[in-house]
Write a protein that binds this DNA or RNA. Structure first.
Lengths: 225, 225
DNA sequence: TTGAAGATGTGAGAGGTGCCACGGTTAGGA
DNA sequence: TCCTAACCGTGGCACCTCTCACATCTTCAA
């Protein structure tokens, strides 16, 4: 069951079975529906979460109410780790994009585990480093690429993580509205819609509600660069 | 001497004197001039660096040769830590903005230190978490703020780290050309120049070569939001 | 001192993107 | 089943920002 998902999570990958089971037992589990919020930006809280099933979005809101998504996370990915090591309130709001379930661990319990278990520490460092590298890539994309390019890149990333290959193309059930997709790439819904319509008219993909079928990965990749 | 700078570095802050001195002895030192490059994006290498003196810029180059600066780092700040935990080539080019000196540590030596010294691990995690939070802030700024707003924010950040308060305002010797400042905020040199000229004409600051004097922090802060 | 290269100021034109407006479509609850 | 709210598709216009072009001003080495 969901122990398998946890074992795949980078945080746990270096643990042996016994240690993983023990750590698992000190984590509590929760379950939410699409649209429900796990915590808000600005909340206090120091729990670390791992997605067991479903998808969530990490978002922040600007002063005038506009929203920007930092990431879409799926099974095995963790979040909330910023508040663990960088003291302060939650830096993002986490909302379920689908029904979803989570395992969570408190700051204190995690710290206990870190002592004497350098491999867990190392796993966390690896995870943070990877997130930082990705964040830097996002910055570069915002500076260098236009909206269609960023949309193409986002679709390819989602395909990579959630896509299923079939004979008519790669089916990507991203579960995002175009509004959410727009917030993810930092653009307006209308502009993203036009980019998608353009890709579809070229035969690169087919649009379906909350999902796309990518028919020409090659050209889409070229457009992303 | 430069041991003081190292002791202030977050990486070392949790160590006692004895441990810090020992770690210091396993680090080697180097010195470069303005404009010289420490390593290039794409290079292999797994050394961690700490700036002892001077300033460096972390930059990446897009496919068509345009450049984008991720950060300006000064004394006590570290870089190169991504290649330590996220295997792969250097993700950015590091160039000296002023003459500068560094202490460096190899991957293997660092790993030895991490074993049995959870506080060092914790220091690294804190540092990475803080960097990640900043990267997310940069993303939000790119999405939500216009160029003048980003310029104002960059100036305030530089003032915070490198500024000296005098009776006629805060003197910020950032050592950056307007071209570099533009790359830092992800805009063209011309647009940044016009933003600066506008701020100056309003009496918020005074422009000097490779530095500014901020006379009205209050209004500049308001413009940054 | 004096060129030359680099850095800074400023204007004009073009293009991408955001915002507004509106109609059509889909989904989910009464 | 119907009805309402959310979501999707598309055109038009305004504005910000980029690019290009060029003049002026430093800096620094010969």
């Amino acid at each position: 069951m969901d122990n398998d998902v946890l074992r795949q999570a980078p945080l746990f990958s270096a643990l042996d079975d016994e240690a993983a089971t023990a750590l698992r037992s000190s984590m509590s589990e929760s379950r939410l529906r699409r649209g429900e919020v796990l915590f808000h930006e600005g909340d206090s809280g120091d729990k670390l979460y791992v997605v067991l099933d479903g998808k969530v979005k990490l978002g922040r809101t600007s002063g005038d109410g506009r929203e920007n998504l930092l990431a879409i996370l799926g099974p095995g990915q963790m979040f909330g780790e910023l508040s663990l090591f960088d003291p302060g309130p939650r830096s993002a709001t986490v909302t379920c994009v689908t029904d979803a379930s989570f395992a969570s661990l408190s700051h204190d319990d995690l710290l206990k585990w870190l002592e004497g278990r350098p491999m867990v520490s190392h796993g966390l460092l690896t995870q943070l480093a990877s997130r930082l590298r990705k964040a830097n890539d996002v910055v570069a994309d915002l500076v260098f690429s236009d909206v269609p390019g960023r949309v193409a890149k986002a679709l390819l990333d989602l395909a990579d993580r959630f896509g299923r290959t079939a004979d008519d193309g790669v089916h990507v059930h991203h579960d995002l509205t175009q509004e959410e997709l727009a917030q993810l790439v930092g653009a307006s819904r209308e502009t993203v819609n036009k980019a998608l319509a353009d890709f579809a008219s070229r035969g690169w993909l087919r649009l379906e509600p909350r999902s796309v079928v990518i028919m020409d990965i090659e050209r889409l990749s070229r457009r992303a660069r």
